[in-house]
Amino acid sequence: AIERGSKVKILRKESYWYGDVGTVASIDKSGIIYPVIVRFNKVNYNGFSGSAGGLNTNNFAEHELEVV
């Protein structure tokens, strides 16, 4: 089962992080479509409006993740 702290591989082909491994930061139990927040070591794009980097978290559905 996917739980907080799990290392997961991203299976969503259109994702910037496809094939990468991230760490589960949290799981939303409220029934939303993409409840699993995954944190990565790298950012997906340069930040804007003065922020240092881009996003390094993204929401995924459990079926888009594979525990490694």
Rank of each mutant, 00 (worst) to 15 (best):
A1G: 11
A1Y: 10
A1N: 09
A1I: 11
A1H: 11
I2W: 03
I2F: 07
E3H: 13
E3R: 14
E3W: 10
E3Y: 13
E3D: 07
R4Q: 11
R4N: 07
R4F: 09
R4K: 12
G5N: 04
S6Y: 13
S6T: 13
S6Q: 10
K7D: 03
K7R: 12
K7S: 08
V8C: 13
V8N: 01
V8F: 02
V8M: 01
K9W: 03
K9D: 02
K9R: 14
I10F: 03
I10Y: 02
L11G: 02
L11D: 00
L11A: 02
L11E: 00
R12N: 04
R12P: 01
R12V: 04
K13W: 10
K13N: 05
E14T: 12
E14L: 08
S15V: 03
S15A: 03
S15K: 00
Y16S: 05
Y16I: 07
Y16V: 07
Y16H: 05
W17G: 00
W17C: 04
W17T: 00
Y18H: 04
Y18V: 03
Y18T: 03
Y18G: 00
Y18P: 00
G19T: 04
G19E: 05
G19P: 01
G19H: 05
D20N: 10
V21C: 09
V21D: 02
V21H: 04
V21F: 07
G22K: 01
G22F: 06
G22Y: 06
T23H: 05
T23G: 01
V24H: 01
V24R: 00
V24Y: 01
V24E: 01
V24K: 00
V24L: 02
A25Y: 12
A25S: 09
S26G: 12
S26C: 15
S26M: 13
S26H: 13
I27M: 04
K29G: 09
K29H: 11
K29F: 11
K29M: 11
S30N: 08
S30K: 07
S30W: 05
S30A: 08
S30G: 09
S30I: 06
G31C: 15
G31R: 06
I32H: 10
I32P: 08
I33L: 13
I33Q: 13
I33H: 10
I33N: 12
I33G: 12
Y34K: 06
Y34V: 03
P35K: 14
P35V: 15
P35Y: 14
V36T: 00
I37D: 01
I37R: 12
I37N: 06
I37W: 14
V38L: 01
V38R: 00
R39T: 11
R39G: 04
R39D: 04
R39V: 14
R39K: 11
F40L: 03
F40H: 01
N41T: 12
N41L: 12
N41G: 09
N41H: 11
K42M: 05
K42A: 06
K42F: 07
V43H: 12
V43W: 14
N44Y: 15
N44R: 10
Y45N: 15
Y45C: 15
Y45P: 15
Y45V: 15
Y45G: 15
N46R: 03
N46K: 05
N46M: 10
N46Y: 07
N46C: 15
G47F: 05
G47A: 07
G47M: 04
G47E: 14
G47L: 04
G47P: 13
F48S: 14
F48Q: 14
F48I: 13
F48Y: 09
S49W: 11
S49D: 15
G50W: 06
G50I: 07
G50C: 15
G50P: 11
G50Q: 09
S51H: 09
S51T: 13
S51R: 02
A52F: 11
A52Y: 10
A52C: 15
A52R: 04
A52M: 12
G53S: 10
G53T: 12
G53A: 12
G54C: 15
G54M: 07
G54L: 07
G54R: 05
L55Q: 12
L55A: 10
N56L: 08
N56T: 12
N56E: 08
T57H: 11
T57C: 15
T57Q: 10
T57F: 13
T57V: 09
T57G: 07
N58H: 14
N58E: 15
N58W: 15
F60W: 02
F60S: 00
F60E: 00
F60N: 01
F60M: 01
F60K: 00
F60T: 00
F60Y: 06
A61I: 02
E62G: 05
H63I: 07
H63S: 10
H63D: 10
E64R: 02
E64V: 03
L65N: 01
L65S: 01
L65E: 00
E66F: 08
E66S: 06
E66H: 05
V67S: 04
V67A: 05
V68H: 03
V68W: 08
